[in-house]
Design a binder for these strands. Sequence first.
DNA 1: TCGACTTTGTGCATCACTTCACAAAGGCAC
DNA 2: GTGCCTTTGTGAAGTGATGCACAAAGTCGA
Lengths: 232, 232
Amino acid sequence: MIRRIPQQPRDRGIPDATVARLPLYLRALNGLAERAVATVSSEDLAVAAGVNSAKLRKDLSHLGSYGTRGVGYDVQYLIYQISRELGLTQDWAVAIVGVGNLGRALANYGGFVSRGFRVAGLLDADPEVVGDHIAGLVVEHSDELESVIAKRGVSIVVIATPATAAQAVCDRVIASGVTSILNFAPVVLTVPAGVDVRKVDLSIELQILAFHEQRKVNGGPVMGEEWAGEVS
Amino acid sequence: MIRRIPQQPRDRGIPDATVARLPLYLRALNGLAERAVATVSSEDLAVAAGVNSAKLRKDLSHLGSYGTRGVGYDVQYLIYQISRELGLTQDWAVAIVGVGNLGRALANYGGFVSRGFRVAGLLDADPEVVGDHIAGLVVEHSDELESVIAKRGVSIVVIATPATAAQAVCDRVIASGVTSILNFAPVVLTVPAGVDVRKVDLSIELQILAFHEQRKVNGGPVMGEEWAGEVS
DNA sequence: TCGACTTTGTGCATCACTTCACAAAGGCAC
DNA sequence: GTGCCTTTGTGAAGTGATGCACAAAGTCGA
């Protein structure tokens, strides 16, 4: 789902699979920090994050040697290093386009603010919704998209519009210079090289669960059922 | 994130990576079907789904030989086959636990119903919320969890509670015989073998975007900044 | 200071997924 | 029919992630 920019050869080459797990480690570490744990072994942290300890160590080794042999990792120091690597030591302005049920949930989601993401704008095309106060912000009209992005230094845009509006919003957002997009609309967005799109589709996860559930129940798809439609 | 059940050697062994893409193909096919397209080549379908055509063909070959050489795939037939493989030809009763902003958004999300998922129950621990009408359902108290699961044949549970409540809900749900859980709470759930948990964490996706965004801007993490905390 | 013990960091083998490239299969025109 | 053209399905090579197993490096008690 990520199109890597070819001209920039990832300087220290952290594998995508590792990057995807760093937030997981970060959350586990924050949990430990809250309980005032000073150091943690790769084994314990791996359990807390739900991964294999060898994998954890290899992942962390991509960031540098931040552990102490015989002891483990300093929790605070590791939190800082992972945060820095992920770019969470700086403040990111995020705009959410589409303030339906999902957009509202996202605007109110505490997990953003606590990790350096600041919701700097809420936009919707529906005049009914424009003007509403949500999570301390006033919903603005989609027409303001470009100016909101420019004026508030938005660098990441969340698209939570209906599927039909998503590509148009995406195009405008990219034209405004944004190169990181989180897409909740159930469409494949077409973007130029250099733009990162991550997609979250709630129903896909359920479909994957249904697949496994079916296997448990039936030991596979129902074979007796026959195709009732017409074929060519 | 999925713990595969070891005793059941996936009968026709469809790779996890393939299963994760089938919903994507299904959506692309539904789009084509709406536009009354009768057949589609692997190349065209691949573009619509945003993947490589060789990968698409290999994925579909795991389901069987449903294409016609020189022509392509019959859209309706392929929709049926993928749906059957994913278990979407049957009706799945889903319960959503935790009716906050996210739970509400999920209850109202159209993508579920249209794919054979029926929201059969909404539960929350907050007496303020119990009794609310959402998406045609009345929110029930979490105490009813076990009876709702049993009486309405719920086989998939969505956890959208605060992090602190998630594990307890999870345990009760599993005790009621459910083995498929979709978790939105930002915690690693501990479950026995044979239970599938899929996790969606909205802030993780943003963190991954921030990582790539930072690389674009700075060419890597800010190196001048030094660690200000105390170590050991 | 030393030796026992713990835990990291990593080379290596393995496994899974991706991509290429092409033979086999079918449709279609004549 | 026959031969050309298109597109599938798949062996095989390539790429990347995983997990084992252990040497290296450090702590800590005596």
